[in-house]
């Protein structure tokens, strides 16, 4: 079972990212479970969402405290939130950032990747240039970096689950898939 935690800012689509990931995993015959950080959702405030992916039915119905993968949708969060809290020692860390992975070596000895999802989303016309909606781009990068789902499944899930601008969202995922940088 893989456990994933998404960090985002309300409005970037972290919760929807976890849902799209679940749909993509389900398309591959896996058993997913996704949920938001339980509580109140506010635009602009730090938010979290979670996903579990397994080959058999997931019975655990508790929070995720020691994720295998952490996905950060906004580079600014690294400074305000302990994004690597509980991340397993050999865990993977994907950050949306224009910096190379080496820029985040201070966070710990995690396998780190970065992708400039903000720029990609803005280029694709998702959201506004000041607050781009990066969730589909980051999923493209996650597919390449973490190999928890295939990019084809992510694209199909985007087409199924995202009602507006499906082409732009797919383009963002594909470009992030190509542009993700690993250490």
């Amino acid at each position: 079972m893989i456990e994933i935690r998404f960090h985002g800012v309300g409005g970037q689509g972290a919760v929807i990212a976890s849902k799209i990931l679940a749909v993509a995993a389900f398309m591959e015959g896996k058993y997913p479970q996704s949920f938001p950080a339980f509580g109140l959702e506010r635009r602009g405030a730090p938010v979290m969402a979670f996903s579990r992916i397994d080959d058999k039915k997931i019975l655990l119905r508790t929070g995720i405290y020691e994720p295998d993968i952490v996905v950060v949708l906004d580079p600014a969060l690294v400074n305000s939130v302990d994004v690597t809290q509980g991340l397993k020692k050999d865990g993977k860390l994907l950050i949306s950032s224009p910096l190379p992975p080496s820029g985040y070596a201070r966070l710990g000895p995690f396998r780190t990747a970065t992708v400039d999802a903000q720029t990609i989303a803005a280029d694709c016309g998702l959201g506004t240039s000041t607050s781009p909606i990066v969730n589909t781009a980051i999923l493209g990068a996650l597919a390449r970096f973490a190999e928890c789902v295939k990019i084809e499944s992510v694209i199909k899930a985007i087409r199924d689950e995202v009602p507006c601008q499906p082409d732009q969202n797919v383009r963002a995922a594909e470009r992030a898939y190509r542009e993700v940088r690993t250490a």
Binding site: Y31, P32, R61
Partner: peptide
């Protein structure tokens, strides 16, 4: 059923 643990949780 439970709030959030089922109400807001996505699964097949």
């Amino acid at each position: 059923y439970d709030a959030f643990f089922l109400s807001h949780t996505y699964e097949p």
